[in-house]
Simulated scan of single mutants.
Amino acid sequence: MIARSLVAALALAAVSFATSANAQDVAAGEKSFNKCRACHQVGETAKNTVGPVLNGLFGRKSGTIEGYNYTDANKNSGITWDDAVFAEYIKDPKAKIPGTKMAFAGIKKEDEIKDLTAFLKQYGADGKKK
């Protein structure tokens, strides 16, 4: 009986830890997004500014946000954004898409990229959190 209780308690603790770790990842991603805010917006009131809106980024083809003036490099990149492509891009945008006008030094830390990805994935194409 004690062994069952211990197993149940450990399982509950593991679930609680995973849930809080995910929440921390999103919070850390929001903090990381501060590096992006000068050019990009997310959320229900987001608008294109220096860079395009990032709502609904994952699963979207590069260069397709209405009303944003993309470079031919972005429009013709053939990229559909997913975790791996975004991770490669955000490390060095100009290396991934030569000719992009995105002037950003990049984010090199894997954990920070994962946190930023978790934050961005919250937003559907309509800007609402999923």
Score class of each variant (00 low, 15 high):
K91E: 11
A38C: 02
G124I: 09
I107M: 08
Q24H: 12
E112F: 00
S77K: 13
G63I: 10
N48Y: 03
D25E: 14
K114G: 07
K101E: 03
G63P: 06
G99C: 10
V53Y: 00
A84Q: 15
K91V: 08
E110R: 11
V50R: 12
T71A: 06
L12F: 07
T49C: 01
I107F: 01
K91M: 08
T80L: 04
K35E: 10
G127I: 08
Y89E: 03
C36F: 04
Q24T: 11
N76L: 13
N74K: 09
L120W: 00
R4T: 08
G63W: 03
A23M: 13
K35F: 02
C39H: 02
R4E: 10
Y123L: 10
D126Q: 13
M1S: 13
A14V: 14
I79A: 09
R4G: 11
R37T: 14
D72G: 02
N55I: 10
T71N: 02
Y89Q: 03
R37D: 05
G78I: 12
S5Q: 14
F33D: 09
K61I: 04
I113W: 00
L10H: 03
L57G: 07
G124V: 08
A105S: 15
L57V: 13
K91W: 00
N69F: 00
T71K: 11
A73Y: 02
P98S: 07
